[in-house]
Design a protein around this nucleic acid. Sequence first.
RNA 1: GCCAACAUAGCUCAGUAGGUAGAGCGUCGCCAUGGUAAGGCGGAGGUCACCAGUUCGAUCCUGGUUGUUGGCUCCA
Length: 634
Amino acid sequence: MLNITLKDGKILEVEHGTSIVKIIDRISKKLAKFALVARFNNELVDLNTVLMESGTLEIFDFDSPEGKEAYRHSSAHVMAQAVQNLFPGVKFGIGPAIKDGFYYDFDTEHIFTPDDLEKIEKQIEDILAADYPFVRKELSKEDALQFFRDRNEEYKIELIEALPPGSIISLYSQGDFTDLCKGPHLPSTGKLKAIKLMTLAGAYWRGDESNKMLQRIYGTSFLKKSQLDEYLHRLEEAKKRDHRRLGKELDLFTLEEEGPGFPFFLPKGMVLRNALEEFMREEYRKWEYEEIKTPIILNRSLWEQSGHWDHYKENMYFTQIDDQEYAIKPMNCPGCMIAYKHAQHSYRELPIRYAEMGLVHRHEKSGVLHGLMRVRAFTQDDAHIFMLYSQITDEIKKVIEMIDEIYRVFDFKYNVELSTRPDNAMGEVDIWDKATEDLRQALEELKIPYVINEGDGAFYGPKIDFHLEDSIGRTWQCGTIQLDFQMPEKFDLHFIGEDGMKHRPAMIHRAIFGSVERFIGILIEHYAGAFPVWLAPVQAKILSISENNLDYCARVFQMLKKRGIRVELDVRNEKIGYKIREAQMQKIPYMLVVGDQEMADETVAVRSRATGAQDVMSVDVFVEMIKKDIDQKK
RNA sequence: GCCAACAUAGCUCAGUAGGUAGAGCGUCGCCAUGGUAAGGCGGAGGUCACCAGUUCGAUCCUGGUUGUUGGCUCCA
């Protein structure tokens, strides 16, 4: 007999060789219905697994990450089977579960079309109806290789060859489809219900652009049709918040064919942008930064000195002035190095914090451009901090606190990543290790949760990145803190120490918005275009009821303007409902309705964007109210 | 950059078995003076992204170019 310990601590006694399914049947009928996979002695396993030893058992349903992953992973296998049935001879890449679904990569002469997706979905239905069991089989590495060689599955062969010799290789079959797979899977295809194929895409084999491009089909699956519908509905809703759409609707910015990746900011977008920059400048004062501005075009020799010429050339634009070659800056650091060197510095001055709203240009590949999120020209709210080595941890912590404080103003949730040494890195490995350790230590001391992103650092140093989410859950790097021991070396920076000798300062690059453009993109999606009053391009709009009220409206307009409120006046010959609808769609925080009544009482009828509630008050009271919103950044 | 799809009025989109195009919104004009999410009527507005080719004739078919969208990160 075996002793099986359950999640609640209960111990079941079962016979040697009992399957997990049987055990679940004994635990509860309901559980039996919803169970998808299990964890036995810390290993995820199929429910069909037969237990040969005592241990702890945990059961997962669709609501658990483990269950959901297995569900989607099994969905991917079913999709692959459907593709195999419809397109014989197709070769298989990989097919994992991902955040909101799954994908599978295929290699076939046939080019999939959206019509094919429908056909594949029909085929999937049949496979679900047939309720094929998922059967696990374990082979030696040699036998597994033979199996896939017989089927000419070159990608599977490559995957198996990468495994250590002597490995036990598991295969999963359902019906006439067999795939190399670690598992676990659901008991049978009939457990799957609502599967939908979403999109087609190209994807390089193993994510390496020197490899062949395979055809990827993305799909998702849910326990019930209603959950799937809800998910699709959420996606539709999210699309309405897309910053590219709102940017157009609210006249914030535009992207034109004449400048792919070079956004135009329109008057309203510019107001928003200026409000953000003004806010950042207040923060500069508060956190003791000094602001500088360095040139956009600088001589090639500078970029050779900084290492950009060797490490970043493909991303840079160049130009000629007289007979000299110049580069358009892709980063602000080299200019800032020169600014630092302009004078001799004492240890007493450190840390020196130079901030710069720096416009940089980068040649991004055409296929990666995306609205304001990924552009070819953007403004970094950059800063470089020069300091003693003994000040490093404190300075990093200060920057982390500053970022956290600023993101809080917008009510952002963010993820933190620590990115380590990339392949094209400049400098010694042990210096990198030291820098990485400094960053890690600061995160640990502040108890900030983070994940490590191997090999994703900048070429001159490791970094802490702050990622924000867009409306459909894609994350974008915004804030960044990068520790750099290379630039001070390359530019021979120094300060005069207590001993009267020259010493090398340490340096941090940091940005908080990251890119003002990207940050605006995120903000638009975050607020769905309904900006808080302090950011709203138009904070209040005066709507006249009839021609009788024109003079009074103009007076109110002037009063508000004088008090610094961003106000617009709508005195067109339209009905009030029409004007309100328009102002509402422009997401203007306050509408001030003015008719005969208000004119007589010297008031305005304030309608709130959020609630639609009306409140009649004097202009002074309204100004006081809206000023309070602005001050509190509401 | 690579794979696929898409590109028609300022915006959102319809359309043509190949015979140079339509709606709604917006804009402009006139009428209505209207009290909290669209009042009525009328007008203007298009080299159907660009360049070639096929054809008597191309917005439509073919090829190329440009741009846009989704993906190329999730590792059996």
